[in-house]
Design a protein around this nucleic acid. Sequence first.
DNA 1: TCTGGGGTCCTAGGACCC
DNA 2: TCTGGGGTCCTAGGACCC
Length: 424
Amino acid sequence: MLALIDSNNFYVSAERVFQPQLRNKAGCVLSNNDGCAISRSNEAKEMGLRMGTPYFEMREQQQQGLLWWRSSNYTLYQDMMRRITAIVRDTFPDQEIYSIDECYCDITGFKYYDLEQVAVELRKKILQYTGVPVCIGIAATKTLAKVANKIAKKYHRETGVCYLDTEEKINTSLQRTEIDDVWGIGPRYAIQLIKAGVNTAFDFIHLPEDYVLKLMTIQGRRTWRELRGQRCIPMEYEQPDKEGISTGRSFGIMETRLEPMEEALAFYVANAGLKLRAQNSVCAKLFIYVQTSLFAVVENRYSASLKIQIDVPTANTAVLIKAALAGLKQIFVQGYRYQKVGVELYDLRPNSQVQASLFEPADSEKETKMQRALKIIDQLNKNYGKDTIRYAVMGYEKKWIMRQEFLSKKYTTRIEDVIVVKAY
DNA sequence: TCTGGGGTCCTAGGACCC
DNA sequence: TCTGGGGTCCTAGGACCC
């Protein structure tokens, strides 16, 4: 058996822990740049507020006091999740952290326990220790555990637990699960399936396997098999290295000038470079892009992108920034109101595998010095706060920075707490 | 006027190899 | 007139997840 522990309305719940005045009132957490709703309280859902509603469509309700909202505060959410997973690990040690608000546990070793009772206790404990409500779904496969979790959220509000241990319970749950609520079936496939008369997960598992394979490729077949109780998606206890690292943000206000866009891009490259070094990788290619708003009238729309090959794969932020800014000059066109600039580092490889360029003589000593310098910079920034040491092109004013007008405090983390003072 | 960001996986087709 | 077989690598596009 597997258990899926998934927080209820996680961002909203995390905000409510430290701001009790937000409890029992309709509210939501906004996306980056305060753009649209990405987490809603139950009261907001009942009001009919949909996922992704743009903020200006909710403004009136907010102004009338019928709805509260907050900017996303990922530092807070990440730290709350760290606490939740630690509590879960105490009970179920074989844990995969799947996303910022959910984790899977392999609980095969608990077959002689009353699993339902263990889960109910765990849930109470998480609520008591962190203030965040979660639901727990238990079933034989990851996809079925997802189904169980949704059933728990919808129908077992008292206990918050759903345990699919009999065929009867599984069938009832599959009948109660709309096809577009199935994990792995997105809006595109859902439309096609509904057209074919498949409305629930129960209908879906009774389709012929070949038909599913043809319509939805092997991923769809995997979902089909998982829903029939066959484990196809393994547990992943270690987080694999990323294959690409991308960073990009919408500007707080539309940008028309090159210079602030250079600053922003340099910032994103520096962030991506940090993540790159954290997993001991180097990158061989950069992808940069600029775009105007998707909602601009057609004649004012512009988007462009560029792939850049790095001669000697590197994790050196200075080299990456230089390459990215040279590329930006090529694709930037005067006269548009830009909404976003971004970068993706890809073609990543372990830094032990770097191959020297034929045309650029490798200077191993210099590279080692550079690596040492980068390590020290990263450490300083970790200890004394982000961007304490930074590249001058990143600028100081950050006029392009995203909107976060309704940001709450980082209640559980303080940079001072992690400062390590050492005397040399 | 104002509408998020960061990922993964699969497939088909083209270029190329021997 | 008839023109092989087996493979790799890359890319673009589509689908999905949170």
